[in-house]
Write a protein that binds this DNA or RNA. Sequence first.
DNA 1: GTGGTCTAGACCACA
DNA 2: GTGGTCTAGACCACG
Lengths: 126, 126, 126, 126
Amino acid sequence: MIITLQDGSEVPVFKQIRNQIVMGISDGRLAPGEKLPTVRALAEEIGINSMTVNKAYQLLKQEGYIITDRRNGVRVKENFEQTKGLTTESEQELARLISEAKVKGMTRDDFIGIVDKYFGKGRGKV
Amino acid sequence: MIITLQDGSEVPVFKQIRNQIVMGISDGRLAPGEKLPTVRALAEEIGINSMTVNKAYQLLKQEGYIITDRRNGVRVKENFEQTKGLTTESEQELARLISEAKVKGMTRDDFIGIVDKYFGKGRGKV
Amino acid sequence: MIITLQDGSEVPVFKQIRNQIVMGISDGRLAPGEKLPTVRALAEEIGINSMTVNKAYQLLKQEGYIITDRRNGVRVKENFEQTKGLTTESEQELARLISEAKVKGMTRDDFIGIVDKYFGKGRGKV
Amino acid sequence: MIITLQDGSEVPVFKQIRNQIVMGISDGRLAPGEKLPTVRALAEEIGINSMTVNKAYQLLKQEGYIITDRRNGVRVKENFEQTKGLTTESEQELARLISEAKVKGMTRDDFIGIVDKYFGKGRGKV
DNA sequence: GTGGTCTAGACCACA
DNA sequence: GTGGTCTAGACCACG
């Protein structure tokens, strides 16, 4: 899987990495149990410091997306916790996005059209 | 309309203000043309630096949510641009939220349930 | 509150800081809402790099012990989540400690004597 | 006795082995004088490097849990030192666990409930 | 001035 | 060779 960084983005590099890996897991480009590049390898590949990659991996580990250990390097977790709900933060973000959409004249169906565009891909019961 | 700041939030204060005003417009608590408090008044009301409120207002103005003029102070815009689409940034954020939801085992219908919870409110053709 | 680092310890510096702050909260030396030293101040005080202090604070934040924000610096959280249970990791650690105690000939009452020695102090319903 | 390694654990493998053997002694699954598998055998059984098992055995030997001799291989010690006290490190760990418990709202009796859950098992005067 | 991010380079325990 | 830790020093957004 290829990680691409946006240059002038507000979102910090380590979080960009985290987001792309989560999306990779979600749409099936990263399979459960699959090995991720080592900290150093990924750092070199995308031309950043390895501490930054480390930070991204630590975040993913803490969130339960990956497992890191010295024997096997870094791997996508096999079983994700099926909380079946958004965090309150995520729900707030969604609420904000919906507000913006409504003000811009989007209907519920317009919005759901976009949701379906992304929900269709990869893993997840549709 | 009352603006409440979250204490330890990652979201910077000026953006919290911006978000709440956008949501206020979206759900009808702020009517088109309605007058907003002055920078100074709002700053005092919520106990923060007026520079911060100013920053929020500038952002809102730049995004086309409010207009400022010397005679009438700050007012909610009368006609919003009906782009009927999300900005690319917003769409990316939505894509990320959907990815997280899918990994956590949410179905499309689970997700749309939450969308509807927020789409039901106030302004916007439903 | 004074933080003292053990020099040759196996436990990393950032975790030592974290532990001492948690214990400070627990025994009342740090009150809810109390301001903690800034990242830089604490780093200078104990003679380490500020990134290390930052790491400790991030951990404490993530665990819900403190709140950090740019307006107010770092503060002890007002209301802790009352989960009223140990994490599975902590329970495993306790199990291990008890195993060691038993092999060394300690009775249940010996062990509880030590527990009481520490439970008596500060905050917490006894 | 079966040794099972936790996959993404923070605890290094050699220490996981050490801990499980100590717990095995404590709850009676390993009897005093009982023969332990050879380094090589155990390494093969759990699929790890024999250096790692060796490290665990050396630690256990140094702590006085096992004895090794050339003729009989590795055996659980017959008589453990009855110090009837925890090491200072262990006591510090316990203090930390108690601190965390208190902050999370556990009472002394809640905590002792968990202690009893583990103290009840196997060897040791209860 | 605050926390947050990032770098370049180093060392360590673990396996 | 792996992840984890730490340093010294820098820059940034926020307030």
